[in-house]
Design a protein around this nucleic acid. Structure first.
Lengths: 98, 98
DNA sequence: CCTTTAATTAGACAGTTACCTAACTATCTA
DNA sequence: TAGATAGTTAGGTAACTGTCTAATTAAAGG
């Protein structure tokens, strides 16, 4: 996993919003651009998509004129266990169940 | 929780290493500076400590000449559930146990 | 082939980050 | 109070980030 890239990607609210929008399934670049709460230009969104792709958090698929983005769901377990391992020291006993 | 600050803080390998060093208990600034794998000046380390404090990931205590840093362990559950919520969509059923 | 729509690439700019050295503050001890 | 040790603050620089507009590529449809 590309840890640095993942954390950097998640450090931006617009990108986190994109990930949340993708929870329900794939969306086109245009849909995502329309739906993010903060108005952002298309090129800026393309940049954010790129950052998310570099972090392997999303993947891309073209269909005609549209480009569809989707979550790389496999990353979630990696992230959770990474965070866990970052803080826990062995004594920590999974008391909290998300 | 200061989400942006937390992710930005975690995006740096030196800072993640500091957190890992703190898993075993509190350490002085000097100990941490000595032990990080990449050689970094004391002022740079102070900067990293500041970033971690801004993110509420660590706390500070002075004892004589030394300053002790320690993990703010309460943040771990917040982080894990945040990551979880970022990706999960309701269908996700905790299949993986860290 | 030309036009429209969807999206990306290119280039510029303001603000932030990580790093350093030099200087400073704080505390202890002789 | 002077000297040593621990750590922070100040100030500067190179690289990175997020944003924009303008130009470009890609595909669809007359």
């Amino acid at each position: 996993m590309r840890i640095n890239e993942v954390f950097k990607a998640l450090a931006d609210p617009t990108r986190r919003e994109v990930l949340q929008l993708l929870r329900g399934g794939e969306r086109t670049a245009g849909e995502l651009t329309e739906r993010v709460s903060k108005r952002v230009s298309k090129p800026s969104m393309t940049h954010h998509f790129q950052v998310l792709k570099d972090a392997d958090l999303i993947c891309q698929r073209r269909e005609g004129q549209q480009v569809y983005y989707a979550l790389n769901t496999s990353v979630v377990e990696d992230m959770v266990s990474l965070i866990w391992g970052l803080f826990s020291d062995g004594r920590t006993n999974g008391e909290s169940q998300p």
